[in-house]
Amino acid sequence: MKILVGLDGHETGARALDHAKRLAAAMEDAVLLVAYVIEWSPYSFQTAEENAERHKRRLEEVAAAQERIVDPAVAALAKAGFTASGLVHHGDVADTLHRLAEENGADLIVIGRASKGGFSQRLFGSSSVNLAMHATIPVTVVG
């Protein structure tokens, strides 16, 4: 069984990872995929200078996320005896996690509940809600 875990760099993501570990420990041959999505919209507005530097910034963002969030998580999992690998991508969090899960043939997506509240979230809904609503793969939202 392949489980994709969505990290967010916060405690909620860490709880999702803990839950996925418990599930994986109870299974045979469980594979953990740790994903971090950098929130990005292709419809945002930027200056010409930002555009010119975008490719460079993107590489830096991916490297930073890899180094600070994904790699430590994967290393910790490997140390605990799990089969694990990491992914870092840009995009809409819900869409991208879903796409990564499909592309990598995951059987389950585990995510934390909304990592931050507030007005905008009430209005537009959180990534967790969007993912749970639209995913074609079972989703576990960890409280």
Partner: peptide, 25 residues
């Protein structure tokens, strides 16, 4: 609209962004 954009290129400058930047000029 991004119909032809490779999702793996997300995070790079999109057609929309290049157009919007040029239009603002």
């Amino acid at each position: 609209r991004g119909d032809y954009s490779d999702p793996n290129d997300a995070g790079e400058v999109s057609h929309f962004q290049a157009l919007a930047t040029a239009l603002s000029g």
